[in-house]
Design a protein around this nucleic acid. Structure first.
Lengths: 346, 346
DNA sequence: ATTGGCACTCACGGTTGAGGAGTGCCAGCG
DNA sequence: CGCTGGCACTCCTCAACCGTGAGTGCCAAT
């Protein structure tokens, strides 16, 4: 069993290792931390910690480094989330000043977060699960092209140019618009897709010209909805991976791959379980199933009122968890507040 | 002066070096290429090439590698663009089947290109320089929010949610829409921005309610136009950089940075000078001003009919130029054809 | 339970030396 | 004059070696 002091030793090891990138030995610990006991005693504790697989020695007669399990214990029991400095707070709020547009708000958020932490920052769009269609709009572009726009009540906009091969007068256009609107507005994205499908199956009579066109447009709308369905991410700071490359034993290829594909990250962030403060961390091997065994992700939920989602950071397993958890928490709070202010005007 | 055979030797060195990643010596050349002369003769040629700074020896008694200047001569005089295999052609066309939407077309193109070459693929949006505003649309979202949409005749769509703090009836809405449309439709993006500015300066009377709203909307439209102004890129395959990391002496950080910022790449691609076939290459140190001294970019112009732009590849200086040039050329042609087919329906 | 002492392990850095790839140069040859 | 074989030379690469020092595990003493 690991003693109370043993856990303190673990904390010291994690802190020093994150700090110096060097395996930390018993001597270093008594030097840098005021334990009031001798190096030999620390050594005994370290042997215990090693038995519990919380730390490991890269080779005989070298200092110890935390295992993934060790980081986990550190994050769960030992790390107090470090509050941000005033300077950091003002930095965030200066980043997030002013935007109304959801796209704008999220892209600023992600930049603030990467700038604050030097890690790869990730912001999820508000979950499609709770998004309802609030508007469907058709804009005729000429030459038989139609711009099809769908808006959800979470503020997401998706648009698509569709080729209907025909021109329409205001009456027809209004009809099609009304038809699609009654079909979708107020419905969830999932429902909407389903209703379009059944609608297409029912109205399979291509004789009336606008009916054929409506079918084409319905398909375009379905594609728009499909886009909402895949929870999209906004990312920033991927270049930072190159800086921290030595922190990843292998290549950073799988990380860049995950960043580019996004879907892996969406699933990973979706499966993480947040604590009572909305914070979550997934460490090293815990991400093995996603091909990211050498990386960690910390997230914080935002927008607790309605269709929430997460902001997160992706970085090496050896990251500064207290600081990064604080950063995602702070940014998530700012973002929540910003979206709530918006809500009052809705 | 470098002899005819000397240039052949240069070609052999470039080819072998790209192939093997090893400095190539005189012996290797006579083995792998049928020059019909002895190694000593090749050595004499190589000494000449070294005098011309076309090749260089990493250290005494090692083989030679091409200098950037050497690659330049190779690309300009020695590389015949290698035609694609039928398999590659079908791969491209299967990638590019069907899309009408410009966004769709470009994102498929970029994926085709990265899949084909294993490099970072870049596609520029059709140049804003020749883009004219074709539509301005206002969609009321409720709660004082307005979706402002601007479309250009090159097919680009930009949208933005603006907060007008008010509801409007159809008449007012039509008035504002008409006002903005007459101001912008048919004008270039640059003109449009200018006209909005002067318009804002003239109508500075905040007493009439819709006039205040129009001003807010005009600002939103201006932001939309601003977005067109920055020639945006579509990118894919940045993870490939990690695979080829050893090809870059230093870090891949500046490359990832350029990819994330985009603006560097836009300028770089803008400054490249294409040959009579629309192909261009920028090699190694030639990119020093952009912080990419160890990278090369090859591009091909597309859409020669109207608002053209470029598709390109970003990779290590030591890349397979013949194949990559062939790839960008082929993909550019497909893309041009696709957009032209589209034009006929306009 | 804690500690000082001590023998032991092993990564790290520098040195040395053999091997080998490749060069530059030169004299000879067609 | 261009080409060739020969040869001495350079210097990178690799492996072996070794001293140093950090850090450990263990133990007897407190």
């Amino acid at each position: 069993m690991v003693s109370e002091r043993g856990l303190e030793v673990l904390r010291a090891i994690v802190q020093d290792y994150v700090d110096t990138r060097e395996p930390v030995g018993s001597k270093t610990i008594v030097d840098r931390h005021a334990f009031g006991v001798s190096a030999a005693t620390i050594r005994n504790d370290m042997a215990l910690l090693e038995d519990e697989e919380l730390i490991v020695a890269p080779h005989t007669s070298s200092g110890r480094i935390p295992t993934d399990k060790g980081y986990r214990v550190f994050v769960d029991h030992l790390a107090e989330v470090r509050p941000l400095t005033p300077a950091q707070r003002t930095a965030i709020s200066s980043f997030l000043e002013g935007p109304v547009d959801l796209d704008d708000a999220l892209s600023r958020t992600v930049r603030a977060l990467t700038q604050l932490t030097g890690q790869v920052a990730i912001v999820q769009y508000p979950s499609f699960e709770r998004a309802n269609v609030s508007h469907v709009e058709l804009v005729q572009l000429g030459s038989g092209r139609m711009l099809v726009i769908v808006v959800t009540d979470t503020g997401r906009v998706s648009q698509r140019v569709s080729n209907v091969q025909d021109e329409f007068d205001e009456t027809d256009l209004g009809r099609m618009r009304a038809e699609l609107s009654t079909l979708l507005v107020g419905r969830s994205v999932r429902d909407g897709l389903h209703r379009i499908e059944t609608h297409l199956a029912l109205h399979d009579d291509p004789t009336k010209p606008w009916d054929a066109a409506t079918r084409v447009l319905a398909r375009a709308v379905a594609e728009d909805l499909e886009e909402f369905r895949q929870d999209r991410l906004v990312l920033a700071g991927s270049a930072n991976l190159a800086k921290r490359e030595s922190d990843f034993r292998g290549s950073i290829y799988p990380l860049l791959e995950a960043i580019e594909q996004q879907v892996t990250l969406v699933r990973l962030m979706g499966e993480m379980v947040a604590d009572e403060h909305g914070l979550a961390a997934s460490i090293g091997r815990e991400n093995e199933a996603f091909g990211l065994a050498e990386a960690s992700v910390v997230t914080s939920d935002y927008d607790a009122t309605g269709a929430g989602a997460r902001v997160g950071l992706l970085g090496p397993t050896r990251m500064d968890y207290p600081t990064n958890l604080a950063a995602v928490r702070a940014v998530a709070r700012y973002l929540t507040r910003m979206l709530e202010e918006d809500d009052t005007s809705r």
